[in-house]
Each structure stands twice: as structure tokens, then as C-alpha cells.
């Protein structure tokens, strides 16, 4: 009896010892690094990579605790510069004037490799090139911002200026309706929005893009310089996880749509339109440059051309000279 008690005791001691040994060797899980991420004005299918990366655990597995915050572009740029947001998706054309005004931000990864702001018109309008806009009417939300810069660049490519056409403002973003109803011949919009909706409505549409003449920098991942120094590894992990999700969505757009619907259930009301918008968005993520250098790659030559173009505009928003090195960093890209 005593022998069996000794055996059981021995086994118990061994088990406890093993258990203690196991616990003692386990590395404590490091706390996840919190990252506050700024996205566009309202949640939408265009932010599917962020939603998918979050839902698939790409951020969590990279040791990140990500929270999203929506806001307009000007607000995001300032919040990123102040450090209130760690990283955000913001217009490249906003980064140039912001840095020229001393806001400490830097563009760290391309999301939209093509400039998404475009001019669109009904095919029946006869407008097929930028030169064809001369003497026509055009609707635009405001005579400022990325759409206005794109319009100036597009017209300049045909030797025109904004005074060569009649421009009406549609601050309520009613320019799509204005084109459909024939109030204006053309309008500015986003390649993944108004032209998609027109095509779905059965209206053949012509889209004029600026990429071939002036490669303006599209929306991308923007970080504050102090945040970049303080959280470089976490930010690098965030960029990698987001690019991973973008690749997933390029392969399987439906996964991106499902991720977006999980965040914004209202999108499920019209899945066909939302999928079309997502497909048009995916088309904006790649270019000849990203095909050669990888998704998210930043083209310094294109940035230099943009700086030169924007600095030379009569109503330039670039207050002081800036260099590409001040505007972009390659440090966070894989």
C-alpha cells in the first residue's frame, strides 16, 4: 500500500514539476500595440482591405490592436500630424500642401496606384479626350481639393485651362445627376463611383483619367513623422497586413465585399452595385509601377512630377518648396 502511495505521489510530483516547468518556460505574450487608423469620411466598401485584415486577424496576429476612425481628408491629415491618429488613408495631393505648411506627415504606402479622381461624361456627349472638354460644361463639387487639381492637370495635358470651359459647382455631390439629366456635359467624380453607377444604369460612359499625363499621387497610407519614429515596427506590420488583405481581395473580391458588409450591413441592400464599386476600386490599386515593384510601392519620379505640376499652378496650394524625400518614405514597405 505504502509503495502504491509513493508511486502516486511520485507521479503527482512529476506532473506538478512538468506543469511548473512548462509555465516557467512560456514567454509572456507581449501586449498588442494599439494603432488608431483614420479612414475616409464614412465607412464604405472602399475600405474593404482594412475590414478584411481586421476580421481575418492579420492585424491581431501581427501584434496590433487596431481601431478605425472615420473623418474627412483635411481632418485626417491634421489628426495624423498631431499624433492623434497613428496612420490613415489620405490623398497624396493633400500630403504635398500639408508638408509644405509644416504638418509633420509622410506618405508611407500607395493604396490607389492610379489617381481615382476622373472626368466622366455620357458617351453620347462626344467627349473622348481632354481636348474635347473645350467649350463644354462641367460639374464639380468645389473649385478646390483633389478633383480641382486633377481637372487642372487634365486640361493642362491638352493645353487648356479651367477658363476654357463652363464650370458649375455641385457642393452636394449632385454632379452625377446633373450629367444624367443633361444639365452639364461632363463632371468630375471617382473612377470607382459615378462612372460605375452610370454603367450599371445602362448609360455608356466615357472616363478621362490624368495618369498618363500627370501621375498625381492617389490616396495612400500616411503617418506622422513622430509616430513613424516611435512605432516603426508596428506600422510596418500594419502596412504588410493591409497589403496582404488587398492581395486577398484582388484574388477574391467577394471576400472583401463580405468583410465590408460585416462592418456596414446596409451595403447588403444592393450587393451588385457594391461589388461593382469594389471591383472598380481594385482596378485602382495597381499600375504598371506596382506590377513591377509590388503592391503599395511608391514611385518617387511620379511624386516629383506631381510636386512640379502643383507648385507651378497659378493657384498653387504648395506654400513652400518641398522635396520628395520630405513627402514619402519607403521604410514601411515590405
Amino acid at each position: 500500500m505504502r509503495r502504491s502511495i509513493d508511486v502516486v505521489t511520485g507521479i503527482l510530483i512529476l506532473l506538478v514539476a512538468c506543469s511548473c516547468n512548462g509555465t516557467g518556460n512560456a514567454q509572456p505574450t507581449p501586449p498588442a500595440t494599439p494603432l488608431k487608423v483614420g479612414l475616409g469620411y464614412i465607412p464604405s466598401v472602399q475600405f474593404a482591405p482594412f475590414y478584411l485584415a481586421d476580421q481575418m486577424g492579420y492585424y491581431r496576429n501581427a501584434g496590433l490592436d487596431v481601431t478605425f476612425q472615420n473623418g474627412d481628408d483635411a481632418q485626417l491629415v491634421t489628426l495624423i500630424g498631431s499624433g492623434a491618429l497613428d496612420i490613415g488613408l489620405s490623398d497624396g495631393t493633400s500630403v504635398i500642401p500639408a508638408v509644405s505648411q509644416g504638418i509633420p506627415i509622410v506618405y508611407a504606402g500607395t493604396v490607389y496606384a492610379k489617381f481615382p479622381s476622373v472626368v466622366f461624361a455620357k458617351t453620347s456627349s462626344g467627349i473622348t479626350t481632354a481636348a474635347g472638354l473645350a467649350g463644354k460644361t462641367l460639374g464639380i463639387p468645389a473649385k478646390e481639393g483633389s478633383s480641382w487639381i486633377m481637372l487642372e492637370a487634365l486640361l493642362a495635358s491638352a493645353g487648356l485651362t479651367t477658363s476654357d470651359l463652363s464650370i458649375s459647382t455641385y457642393p452636394d455631390y449632385g454632379q452625377l445627376v446633373a450629367v444624367e439629366q443633361g444639365q452639364v456635359d461632363s463632371a468630375t467624380g471617382f473612377a470607382n463611383n459615378e462612372p460605375v453607377q452610370m454603367q450599371l444604369a445602362g448609360d455608356p460612359v466615357t472616363v478621362l483619367t490624368v495618369d498618363s499625363s500627370t501621375p498625381l499621387p492617389g490616396p495612400g497610407l500616411v503617418v506622422g513623422t513622430s509616430t513613424l519614429a516611435a512605432k516603426k515596427d508596428a506600422l510596418r506590420a500594419f502596412v504588410a497586413a493591409t497589403l496582404h488583405a488587398m492581395k486577398d481581395i484582388i484574388t477574391d473580391p467577394q471576400a472583401g465585399l463580405d468583410a465590408a458588409i460585416a462592418v456596414v450591413p446596409e451595403l447588403a441592400q444592393d450587393k451588385t452595385t457594391q461589388l461593382a464599386i469594389l471591383n472598380a476600386t481594385i482596378a485602382q490599386w495597381t499600375s504598371a509601377y506596382t506590377d513591377a515593384h509590388g503592391l503599395g510601392a511608391i514611385d518617387p519620379t511620379a511624386w516629383q512630377k506631381s510636386v512640379d505640376f502643383m507648385s507651378g499652378l497659378p493657384d498653387t496650394v504648395v506654400a513652400k518648396p518641398v522635396t520628395v524625400d520630405q513627402l514619402v518614405t519607403q521604410e514601411l514597405l515590405p
Binding site: 491629415v77 493633400s94 500642401p97 505648411q101 452636394d172 496650394v317
Partner: peptide, 22 residues
């Protein structure tokens, strides 16, 4: 702010959103 080409409200938007000239 609801839509205009000129005015101090437009200048606020320009200064804040396009020029970043606080």
C-alpha cells in the same frame, strides 16, 4: 459651406482643406 465660389466660409475651407494654412 453648402456651396460657393467666394466668401469667408469658402476661404476657411480652402485654408483648412486645400492649403492647410491654419
Amino acid at each position: 459651406w453648402a456651396g460657393a465660389d467666394s466668401g469667408l466660409g469658402v476661404l476657411i475651407n480652402l485654408a483648412r482643406g486645400s492649403l492647410f494654412d491654419i
